[in-house]
Every structure is written in C-alpha cells, then in structure tokens.
Amino acid sequence: MYWWSGLALGLFSFGIIGFGFFWVIRMEYYLGYLWWPYPLAFGLLLVLASLFVGDAGWSALLGITGASFVWGATELKEQAVRADLGWFRANPNRKPDPPGLRWIKKIKAPHL
C-alpha cells in the first residue's frame, strides 16, 4: 500500500539532488564557497525540524531536503576548484564576504 508514497519520495529525492547541482553552482558563482556554513546549518535545521513534524510524509520531505543541503555545503569547495580550473564559468567580480568570515576561515571547509 506504500508503493506510490515510497516511489514519490524516491523521485522527490532525485529532484532535490538535481536542484542541489543547480544551487551549488549558482551559490559558488555569486557568493563563493566560504558561505558553506550557511547551507550546512540550514540543512541540519531542516533535518532537526523533521523530528518534530508529526506527519511521516512531511517529516520525510524535510529530512530529504535537509540532507541534500548538507551535502551541497560540502560540495561548494570542490565547485570553487572546478571554477579555478576553468571547467565552470568563474565570476569576474569580487564576491561578498559571508557573515563571520574570520571564524569561517579558521575552519577547513568540509569536503567528502
């Protein structure tokens, strides 16, 4: 009886991963990889929120979306290298500093 719901969640996950490719490229281009803690925190918050949503379906959608943002945060650094190598368009303009840049620079950007 879960055949439709399970497949729908699988397809949703597929779609949200595809969206991840899109926003990682855009975010690296316009903001820079040093903004990585923000999608990481956003993703973790979504996963945390999924624990407190009573409905299993909504909880699932939040969890899947959160996990995709956590992954995207770890992918920003590699995307910056791809842009350095000329595999992706590099932004010719200076990017804005993320809030808390001093602390962010003290932590090695996560990459898996």
Binding site: S13, S50, L51, F52, V53, W58, S59, G63, A67, V70
Partner: peptide, 23 residues
Amino acid sequence: MLQFAGFWMALATFLSIWWGHVG
C-alpha cells in the same frame, strides 16, 4: 514523540549522494 521518518530519509539521501560521488 519524535518522528524519525525524516531522519532515516535524510540518512538515505545523504549516503546515497555520498556513494554516488565517491563510490
């Protein structure tokens, strides 16, 4: 009571993406 459905989906999604890249 906590709803763990989302947590397990999150874990499946994250590990799937990880394996999809590294594996």
